[in-house]
Amino acid sequence: MNIFRFFGDISHLASIFILIHKIHTSRSCRGISFKTQVLYVAVFVTRYLDLLYSWVSLYNFVMKVFFIASSCYILYLMKVRFRPTNDPSIDTFRVEYLVGPCAVLALIFNYGYAVTEVLWSFSIFLESVAILPQLFMLQRTGEAETITTHYLAALGAYRTLYIPNWIYRYFSEGYVDPIAVTAGLVQTGLYLDFFYVYFTKVLQGQKFELPA
């Protein structure tokens, strides 16, 4: 564990709390892509199957359980509790274009032909693109509530912090995970446009609005 990974994980936790807070206080999941949230459940469940057979640390265990539970809770909020505020008609990204290629990539690039290893790879690839339905929705509507942009910024910060974590681990432990690094770089790249608007507008006190 190093500070980059630690604060990355904390940032990831924060993003989830921000999202849940947004839904509760506004009593609405407007502006949130249900598809992205479903993909995150798929990511966490397929990646954390090792909860059943391997022990890393208490920290690792608690975080994994939290990510699975909180992502399922968000689906419940969106589909049951605040269902009327969820508008599927603007959440139109075709998820099969993400899941299919990720499954193929996982079969080609993995660390061993075991079901759990292939699912692990799949989850890494899927996480890297899971935010796309959300960003697509943002693009379509052209604007976002400020709190939603804080959610995305915290998620983006989590991904960004994993990069110095890998650099640190390479030099301190000689540890490199090529699959995680490659997918992680792609994932972080997806946030660049968003970050630009976030830093130049939202953090200057303006509303998140994309140019028409």
Binding site: R5, D9, H12, R47, D50, S54, V56, S57, N60, M63, K64, F67, Y111, G112, W120, Y162, N165, Y175, D177, A180
Partner: peptide
């Protein structure tokens, strides 16, 4: 192998 790719990251 297990050592290097133990998947200790979240």
């Amino acid at each position: 192998h297990e050592e290097v790719h133990g998947h200790d990251e979240l």
